Lab assay of single mutants.
Amino acid sequence: MQGVVKVNSALNMRSGPGSNYGVIGTLRNNDKVEIIKEVDGWYEIRFNGKVGSASKSYITIVN
């Protein structure tokens, strides 16, 4: 499943599904990500070869 980031500035990509996990990357508006699965309001995603988590509130699913 594919998604597109929708933010005003930037979205942190984290090492796990929650804001208490470390930041491993930064996503910008309109970045395209691969959604692997949903976990507690977060998506596990793949972006630029990295796997991490980002809040699903800022990612829109595209077909």
Score class of each variant (00 low, 15 high):
Ser19Cys: 15
Ile59Cys: 04
Arg14Tyr: 15
Ile36Ser: 03
Tyr43Ser: 01
Lys6Gly: 06
Lys6Ile: 11
Ser57His: 14
Ile59His: 01
Glu44Gln: 10
Val4Thr: 08
Ile36Arg: 03
Asp40Gly: 11
Arg14His: 15
Asn12Arg: 12
Gly49Leu: 04
Leu27Pro: 01
Phe47Gly: 02
Val51Tyr: 10
Ser9Glu: 13
Val62Met: 10
Thr60Glu: 15
Gly16Pro: 02
Asn63Tyr: 10
Gly25Thr: 09
Gly25Lys: 04
Ser15His: 05
Thr60Cys: 14
Ser57Phe: 13
Asn8Leu: 10
Ile36Asn: 02
Tyr58Ala: 13
Asn20Thr: 08
Ile59Met: 00
Ser15Cys: 09
Ile36Thr: 07
Arg14Leu: 12
Ser55His: 15
Met1Tyr: 10
Met1Ile: 13
Ser9Pro: 07
Lys37Tyr: 08
Gly18Met: 00
Gln2Gly: 07
Asn12Gln: 14
Gly25Trp: 02
Thr60Trp: 12
Asn30His: 10
Pro17Asn: 07
Asn8Ile: 11
Val4Asp: 02
Thr60Met: 12
Arg14Ser: 05
Gly52Lys: 01
Asn30Ala: 08
Ser55Asp: 15
Ile35Glu: 01
Lys32Gly: 05
Val62Asn: 07
Gly18Tyr: 00
Tyr43Asn: 00
Ile35Asn: 00
Ser9Trp: 09
Asn63Trp: 09
Lys32Ile: 15
Leu27Trp: 00
Lys56Cys: 08
Asn29Ser: 08
Gln2Glu: 11
Lys37Thr: 10
Asp40Leu: 08
Gly22Thr: 13
Pro17Trp: 01
Val4Asn: 03
Val51Trp: 07
Val23Asp: 05
Arg14Asn: 05
Asn29Cys: 11
Lys56Pro: 06
Trp42Met: 02
Thr26Cys: 13
Ile59Val: 07
Lys6Phe: 05
Gly3Glu: 02
Gly25Asn: 05
Glu34Asn: 07
Ser55Ile: 14
Lys56Ile: 09
Asn63Phe: 09
Asn12Ser: 11
Asn48Cys: 09
Glu38Phe: 05
Gly49Glu: 08
Asn29Val: 07
Ile59Ser: 00
Val39Ile: 13
Ala10Gly: 11
Lys37Gly: 15
Glu34Gln: 10
Leu11His: 06
Asn12Ala: 14
Lys56Gly: 07
Asn20Gln: 14
Glu34Ser: 07
Asn12Ile: 14
Asn8Met: 09
Lys50Cys: 10
Thr26Ile: 15
Thr26Asp: 06
Ala54Tyr: 01
Gly25Ser: 07
Thr60Leu: 11
Ala10Cys: 15
Asn20Trp: 13
Lys50Arg: 11
Gln2Asp: 08
Asn30Asp: 11
Lys56Arg: 07
Met13Ala: 05
Ala54Pro: 01
Ala10Lys: 14
Gly22Asn: 13
Ser55Trp: 12
Val62Cys: 13
Val62Ala: 09
Tyr58His: 14
Val33Ala: 01
Arg28Val: 11
Gly3His: 03
Ile45Glu: 00
Tyr58Cys: 14
Asn48Tyr: 06
Ile24Ala: 03
Lys56Asn: 06
Trp42Val: 01
Met13Tyr: 04
Tyr58Pro: 04
Glu38Thr: 06
Gly41Asn: 09
Ile45Asp: 00
Arg46Trp: 10
Asn12Phe: 10
Met1Val: 13
Val62Ser: 09
Asp40Pro: 05
Ser9Asp: 14
Leu11Gly: 07
Lys37Trp: 07
Arg46Lys: 12
Met13Arg: 02
Gly16Arg: 01
Asn63Met: 12
Asn29Phe: 08
Ser57Leu: 14
Gly52Met: 03
Gly3Trp: 04
Ile24Tyr: 00
Leu11Glu: 07
Ala54Glu: 02
Lys32Tyr: 12
Glu38Val: 08
Tyr21Lys: 04
Asn12Asp: 15
Glu44Ile: 15
Asn63Ile: 13
Asn29Thr: 08
Ile45Pro: 00
Val4Phe: 06
Glu44Tyr: 10
Lys6Cys: 14
Gly3Leu: 04
